[in-house]
Amino acid sequence: MTATGFIKDRLVPVGSILLVILIAWYFAAYSMNAPFQRDFDRRAGETRTSVEFLKKTMSQPKPTMPAPHQVATNLWKNTLTVKPWSKRSLVYHSWVTLSATLLGFAMGTALGVAIAIGIVHIPALDRSFLPWIIASQTIPILATAPMIIVLLAAIGVTGLLPKALISTYLSFFPVAVGMVKGLRSPDVLHLDLMRTYSANRMQTLWKLRIPASVPFFFTSMKVAIAASLIGAIVGELPTGAVAGIGSKLLAGSYYSQTVDIFAALIAGSIVAILLVTAVDVVGRFVNTRMGAKSQ
């Protein structure tokens, strides 16, 4: 992509949306913080000009809705001005969440692929398993996560693994569903071809079904890794808020530190973008290696 192409195709559209969001955000911050500020000023008996009043709504210590620049300052302070391994650093908390995310994602992907291979090859599983898998995802994770954490803690499993298991629970589903579709994607012609070679099921799986499912695999992994992150954050909420983005969210809500909450949310989004991008980049690389026309 050329420099001008990048500006035209990426920077302008993404920048425009960002600008709209910022304007809406500032407007929301003003209108949500104004009642408190008005009330506060009335009690203190202060009268301010409109500009002064506007500035005040944007700089409350515990605003109902923090303004973007407050969040940005918080984010800056908690990432770049503190040591990354200190408890105050969002980098540290992001890393805690990220490690649970990655472990859960790896387990979820493996589980999803295994389930898909089973479903494609064993008719009984095909008929019996899919409804259960779908049902598993209709259970609200927010309700089950604390139970899983508490139950695992009761048998002495704490720390990374319980959180990762919640990630696994959320991430195996898109992989399983995507891979069932992917493993079934070879057309009859190719299956007939393998049959004329007297290929056994294992050979057909390795040489035909799995290569054919690769594009489906990466698409479903993009969904799965985002779900993994959500699972890890949700898993951190009931752990007594030790570390991680989830614990920052929880601590923020305990002490009404709305700026902290928003900063943690942004940190989480950045981690999500990085993860999805990483899967995408690997996917593109593999696709090119597998002979896809370069776009």
């Binding site: 012609l189 190719h190 007939d192 071809l193 004329t196 040489k207 035909l208 290569p211 054919a212 690769v214 597998m290 002979g291 896809a292």
Partner: peptide, 14 residues
């Protein structure tokens, strides 16, 4: 036997 189909049926990733 070797079988040749109407379409070449080459695997696109090979």
């Amino acid at each position: 036997y070797g079988y040749v189909f109407q379409q070449s049926a080459l695997l696109p990733w090979r």
